[in-house]
Design a protein around this nucleic acid. Structure first.
Length: 385
RNA sequence: GGGUAGGUUCCGGAGUGGCCAAACGGGGUGGACUGUAAAUCCACUGGCAUUGCCUUCACAGGUUCGAAUCCUGUCCUGCCCA
């Protein structure tokens, strides 16, 4: 059976399908490269799009090469960014790299994955070699990218180290002699630099496979931790489920395609389809049982507005304290920090409910023996006890 | 190195001596409505406090009864010139 159509599925752009066909026809395991920069400790669903494609190659017997960009992460990929990224130290990066690998193997097959750190070669390079590498590209090439151009036009700084990024990513491809490089559509430029460098080194050029960008929970921007619109793969089932339910309907089709690798049936009710989506994703990263539980919990909490039978953390009231103090403490027990002013506003605006009744007086006393459910905000509530 | 324009609250961006915790827009949050969707409407959006107080407008000093606004120095950025 011809694997090509399946491999091309979901790809935003492939340069070129023809080259890919030829490589496949060689009948050897291809080296498929995917680079990740461990700039944060956790990977999120957006990262899993590329990993899933990589897994697909693995299942066909190809060799996955996961490049951990310990060096490139210190620069930060400027792709799509409107500002320089904060620079991380090598120690921070290495700590992130550890959790990244663990999480990536929730999707990848360890047996067919080679993990490489690009520090392996960059750390060794002398300044002379760096200069030599830099002399192969022109400033104009590096600056023609839209993100840089935009910053230039808007009078924002573009720092010299940022233009090193594509060169480094390209050099990675040379080092591992990549046959194929996967990346988001915003990686087109970087991947093409890899092709250029490979050609200069007399290597066969890699095929560029660009995958669509997964939008975040807001339904418009790219999923990214720094934008606060991401779902981490290690998040607890209930929270993962809830977040997925909050995506706009319009974003659902993309999630089906990119995360489940199938098309969203047009005739399904959006809510049913979304619950199914959430359930399956939770099942993938946790378990079927967790997923079933998360679904039940969601139904109880939101569909039936039955907080009482939902799975809530308990909170012991602070004796003799007013409502605001207790709510602040309750948020704190959930790991959220809210100022008293903030909580006061929540109270006055009717967010705080005790057993379904709004309490809008910030100074309302709470008897220590009060029991029931205290709703804090849209998604958080605690059981008193 | 020279010239010039700037650095404002999460972001963009007003404000050029008191009426400024600082317009307006975006974003975010809460409420109503819902399918925890979208759209819409309302409210809130530095901290503490039931009058009021405290800390903010790059940083450090200064002038003044009073400064985001004036002065001096420092740091940072854009643009033009070299």
């Amino acid at each position: 059976m011809d694997p090509l159509p399946d491999l091309l599925r979901n790809c935003a752009q492939v340069l070129s399908p023809d080259e890919l066909r030829k490589k496949l026809a060689e009948g050897r395991p291809l080296r498929v490269k995917l680079g990740v920069d461990p700039t944060a400790p956790d990977i999120h669903l957006g990262h899993t799009v590329g990993l899933t494609k990589l897994r697909q190659f693995q299942e066909l017997g190809h060799q996955a090469i996961l490049i951990i960009g310990d060096f490139t992460a210190m620069i930060g990929d400027p792709s799509g960014r409107s500002a320089t990224r904060p620079q991380l130290t090598h120690d921070e990066v290495m700590a992130n790299a550890k959790t990244y690998q663990e999480q990536a193997f929730k999707i990848l097959d360890p047996a067919r994955t080679r993990v490489v750190f690009n520090g392996e070669w960059f750390e060794m390079m002398s300044f002379e070699e760096v200069i030599r590498l830099n002399s192969r590209v022109t400033l104009q090439q590096m600056l023609q990218r839209e993100d840089f151009r935009d910053r230039l036009d808007r009078g924002l700084p573009v720092r010299a180290h940022e233009i090193q990024y594509p060169i480094m990513q390209g050099w990675d491809s040379v080092q591992i002699q990549a046959d194929i490089e996967l990346g988001g559509t915003d990686q087109l430029f970087n991947i093409m630099v890899g092709r250029d460098l490979q050609r200069e080194e007399g290597q066969p050029q890699q095929v560029a496979m660009m995958l669509p960008i997964l939008v975040g929970l807001d339904g418009t921007q790219k999923m990214s931790k720094s934008l606060g619109n991401s779902v981490g793969v290690t998040e607890p089932p209930v929270s993962m489920f809830g977040k997925l339910m909050s995506i706009p309907d319009a974003a659902m089709a993309g999630y089906y395609e990119l995360l489940l690798n199938e098309s969203l049936a047009a005739d399904t009710h959006p809510m049913v389809a979304k619950k199914e989506l959430a359930r399956r994703i939770v099942a993938r990263f946790h378990s079927e049982a967790d997923a079933a539980h998360a679904l039940e919990d969601f139904n109880a909490r939101f569909s039936q507005r039955d907080l009482a039978s939902a799975d809530l953390p308990t909170f012991a009231l602070l004796p003799g304290q007013d409502l605001v103090s207790n709510v602040v403490a309750a948020f704190a027990s959930l790991g959220a920090t809210r100022s008293r002013s903030d909580v006061r506003r929540l109270v006055e605006q009717g967010s705080i409910q005790l057993n379904g009744e709004k309490i809008t007086d910030p100074k309302a006393p709470l008897d220590a023996g009060t029991t029931g459910i205290l709703k804090l905000d849209k998604t958080r509530a605690v059981r008193l006890g």
